[in-house]
């Protein structure tokens, strides 16, 4: 493929250098030069002045618009963070049940260590957070009736 390409390019060069091809080249070279009028040049200058003014205006607008846009976005973001939607709060409620269970377990274990320590088991130590187990009573009904 490379050889074929180089052969093609070589062949094209030879054909391009042929007498007929070079004659046409000279003819095209001999075509008269083009020239533009001063009126054209004046018109171009006017358009360039307008183009410069437009570019400077865009730059000035960018100086004002970009900081304003940045501030607006920052304000919107801050408002979103400060005033979270209500669904976010309701989602937190189920967690409180788990949290309170964990806290009471921790509280009980602390009580165990502080009060019970050796000799007492967890059932013998209760906290105010947990209601007393009605079955876990020193006195039974039979005991009460026997009195």
């Amino acid at each position: 493929m490379v050889n074929k390409k180089s052969q093609n390019s070589g062949m094209n060069d030879e054909m391009l250098d042929s007498v007929g091809q070079q004659a046409v080249r000279k003819i095209v070279q001999a075509l008269p030069e083009d020239s533009l009028s001063m009126a054209w040049r004046s018109s171009l200058n006017e358009r360039l002045v307008v183009a410069v003014a437009q570019k400077q205006k865009k730059k000035r607008m960018a100086w004002i618009v970009r900081p304003a846009l940045g501030l607006s976005l920052a304000t919107v973001f801050a408002l979103i963070v400060m005033f979270q939607p209500s669904w976010r709060r309701s989602m937190a409620t189920p967690d409180r049940g788990i949290e309170s269970a964990i806290m009471s377990d921790h509280h009980n274990s602390v009580l165990l260590n502080d009060v019970g320590n050796a000799g007492l088991n967890a059932n013998e130590v209760t906290s105010e957070a947990n209601p007393e187990d009605p079955d876990d009573d020193m006195w039974s009904d039979a005991d009460a009736q026997s009195l």
């Binding site: 390019s9 094209n12 054909m15 391009l16 007929g20 091809q21 046409v24």
Partner: peptide
């Protein structure tokens, strides 16, 4: 570059 040369050749041939 090859395309340039080919088109140049054809253009001159057209003028011929």
């Amino acid at each position: 570059v090859g395309t340039v040369k080919s088109r140049l050749f054809l253009a001159r041939a057209h003028l011929q």
